[in-house]
Design a protein around this nucleic acid. Sequence first.
DNA 1: GTTGGAACTGAACGGCGCTCAATCCGTGCC
DNA 2: GGCACGGATTGAGCGCCGTTCAGTTCCAAC
Lengths: 204, 204
Amino acid sequence: MGRRNDHTREELREMALQAAEKIIVEQGYAGLSARKVATEIGYTVGSLYLVFRNLDDLIVQVNARTLDELYDCLQTTVDERQPPRERILAMGRAYIDFATRHAHRWKLIFAHRLPQQEPTPESFIARVARMFELVRHHLQALAPQRSPEELALAAHALWSGVHGVAILGLDQKLQADHGLPVQFTVQEVADSLIDRYLIGLLQG
Amino acid sequence: MGRRNDHTREELREMALQAAEKIIVEQGYAGLSARKVATEIGYTVGSLYLVFRNLDDLIVQVNARTLDELYDCLQTTVDERQPPRERILAMGRAYIDFATRHAHRWKLIFAHRLPQQEPTPESFIARVARMFELVRHHLQALAPQRSPEELALAAHALWSGVHGVAILGLDQKLQADHGLPVQFTVQEVADSLIDRYLIGLLQG
DNA sequence: GTTGGAACTGAACGGCGCTCAATCCGTGCC
DNA sequence: GGCACGGATTGAGCGCCGTTCAGTTCCAAC
């Protein structure tokens, strides 16, 4: 089993993913190309296709890693000793903060479109579900009287909402002139959404 | 002023935008190319660049039209004779419905990324602001005791949230398994978000 | 020393966005 | 009618893209 290089398939995959992440961070989605990734890791373009089905496959795997990092970030943020409401607000802030700090990689998760009606990959669905589940867990601590269905629905609604705030906020869509002297920060908007939704969940 | 064709610049622009919309509807963002648009309207690729700065410019203009259509859709939906809460829920449903019916065009609005740090175009910011303003107007009818700042913030938060629900919902991210027998529809999730946020706005 | 075959290469293909010298042809003038 | 002007339009060409695959290299086993 001759191998010219010391790199196993797995090492090659890891190197390529790291190179891709570096390019995305520095140049954004538009700056990413198979040739650049290959050059960055000292291989030629053909070798990438021994490890990835195609460039979409590589991007899907980059996104999976970003989602993992985001999940870790949210999980680490939560302090179980705090009251549930504080925990959920902290997670919201951590989400916004992550999206802001890693704007290029985070945008890629949602800017990337698979061709035509290609289904959303399982790796993606599972990771989003896991994040919803984390939110649901802390919502349960806040409103234990609610049924599992209600809590799952609430987690979906609230976290999709936070996600929407992050998207529009990062594209500066929130800096629109609304005839008022103040401009809202993304954090403020997210806080407003979470705070009021939780009140509604407790009282409604 | 010799002109070979009967089409003015404005007519050319209109034809190109319609052709682009057709291609996007049929083939999605990935299927769009300058050559296809040019062929579709019976011109060659060079002519497009007499009317548009580049392809990004064309897409930005397509998106502006989609946003106008969306705004009209929301405005038409609202019946002033209904109670404010009903109006806002109706707008949320109209938003989700629009995004579902015109999925390809609607996704393009948010999938399209301008190169690097190119600022979000004014046409975009203004149209999003107008939508927020529409929401704010009806929130005011619901909670007239709130200050203009509070209402503007609430409109941003709530509508960004609805937007997030639409995004994740259209990508089937909401069909994730959460160990429950039920699956939520996008409409249900949006309703949950709006309903509870409005309760929080009234009581908080 | 030989050889089988995995690892790797890189030219080639069709398509992309975009440019611009060349061409076309309606118009106004004589 | 003939001519020349100049805006309208063309399309080949550039450098890039994703992807393929015949060919080359060279390790491991015998």
